[in-house]
Amino acid sequence: MRWIITTIIALVAGFAGAAAWDYSGWGVDRVRADLIAEPQWLPEAMTEYQAIMMAEQIAPLRAELLTPYPGAVFGNPEGSITLVEFADYACGFCRQSLADVNALVAANPDLKVVIREYPILSADSADAARMALAAADQGRFEAFHNAMFAQDGVTVETIENAATQAGVDLDRARASIEAGEFERQLQNNVFLGQTLNLSGTPAFIVGNKIMVGAVGAEQIGEAIAEARDS
């Protein structure tokens, strides 16, 4: 029955119908009949198709995705496995996922986490993203990232509270923000997110997997293990 999965993937992906039938040795009526008899093959085919599509989306962007804004990284900076997270400080699911990511870092000494600021929820989250990149310039990114998610919401006051707790030089950070030093990075993150069709946060990318939402440490951990073995 493996040929049915291949045929379905070919059809959904828009390959020439004749080529699919040549490969399978059967016609469309036989495919339909076998799917009616054993419909469990369709979910498997769709899962494989989605995996192919994700890999094709990621491939041309991989080098850029895996290259962090200098300092906007935690875990093992030289790690052999990279987890990319698109995050918004105004996102409750990102806040919920912070413990999962930190647990994965603790459990995987070869894991490098690249955070891509993706402030799509509010103007205040964009201000927090700018402060995060200013913190990265000062080697205080992880401290700010954790402190910001510990705040009660995202406001001018909570952003400055988090920056102060993280040991950020606020005068230096404000000067960099006012000079527009982080706008290109934020625009590029939006471009990457839109190219990957990321409609929400958090979004995690590791290996050839894209996972959107608070999917939990177990699912991300499985994707990390799969990327490590590939």
Rank of each mutant, 00 (worst) to 15 (best):
A45P: 12
V101G: 10
L61W: 10
E48I: 11
L98H: 09
V101S: 06
E117D: 12
V114G: 00
M53C: 12
I58P: 00
E117F: 01
G79T: 10
L66S: 07
A51Q: 15
A129W: 08
A63F: 07
Q57K: 14
A59W: 04
S122E: 00
C91Q: 05
P109W: 08
P60Q: 14
Y49L: 15
V105C: 06
A55K: 14
V84K: 06
A72N: 03
V113H: 02
M54D: 15
A123C: 09
N76A: 11
T47P: 06
D100C: 05
Y118N: 01
N102K: 06
E56L: 14
R130E: 15
A63T: 13
L104M: 02
Q57V: 10
L42N: 11
P109F: 04
T82S: 10
G75N: 03
V113P: 05
I58G: 10
A90K: 05
I115R: 06
R95G: 09
G79R: 11
S125Q: 00
T47H: 12
V114I: 08
I52E: 13
E78H: 12
L65A: 02
A87P: 04
E78I: 02
P109Y: 08
F74P: 08
A123R: 15
C91I: 07
F74N: 03
L83H: 01
S97N: 05
Q50E: 14
L121G: 05
C94M: 08
P68K: 12
L66N: 09
T67F: 04
E64P: 11
L66M: 15
V101F: 03
V113R: 02
V105S: 02
I81E: 07
P109D: 12
T82Q: 07
S97V: 01
I52K: 13
Q50A: 13
N108K: 02
D100W: 05
D100P: 03
V101P: 01
Q50I: 15
E56S: 14
I120A: 06
T67Y: 02
A123V: 12
